[in-house]
Computed example of a mutant assay.
Amino acid sequence: MSERAIDLMKPQMQGLLAKHLRFHIVGAFPASLGVAAFCKFAVAKPRKKAYVDFYRNYDSMGDFEEMKKAGIFQNAK
């Protein structure tokens, strides 16, 4: 047998899946928390604030009257 064949390591066959899962779960958990925090603060909070700001001064009857004058409603007189 040559000397090079002795230096090669055997591939790991047992516990390979568990080793890879441990490694990837450690990275996936903080990544998912980061994405969730980003969605909350970059999407959900501004959207809720926009709804609150819109409905704070919204006049539904005035909007209805404008649409009625424009002829959008056919049955409203």
Rank of each mutant, 00 (worst) to 15 (best):
K10R: 12
S32W: 08
K77R: 07
M1R: 10
L8N: 09
D7Y: 09
K77Q: 07
S32E: 05
R4Y: 07
G34V: 03
D7T: 06
Y58W: 09
F64R: 01
I25P: 01
V43I: 14
L21R: 06
L21P: 02
F64A: 05
K19Y: 09
I25Y: 03
A76D: 02
C39P: 02
L16N: 11
S32C: 07
A70M: 03
A44I: 08
R47D: 04
A5H: 04
P11H: 07
E66V: 10
A70P: 00
A42K: 09
P11W: 10
Q12I: 15
Y55H: 02
I25A: 06
D53A: 10
A50Y: 05
L16T: 09
F38S: 15
K49C: 02
F41S: 14
A50V: 02
Q74L: 13
Q14S: 11
A36N: 10
A50F: 06
N75R: 04
K68Q: 12
L17E: 14
E65F: 15
F29T: 08
M1Y: 11
V35W: 06
F64C: 04
L17C: 14
G27K: 10
L33N: 08
H20Y: 06
I72Q: 04
A31M: 08
N75H: 07
V52P: 00
F23S: 12
N75I: 01
H24W: 07
S2A: 05
G62F: 08
L16K: 11
I25Q: 02
K10L: 13
A42R: 06
V26A: 14
N75V: 00
N75M: 09
L17K: 12
N57M: 05
A50D: 08
Y58I: 00
R4G: 07
M61N: 08
G15H: 00
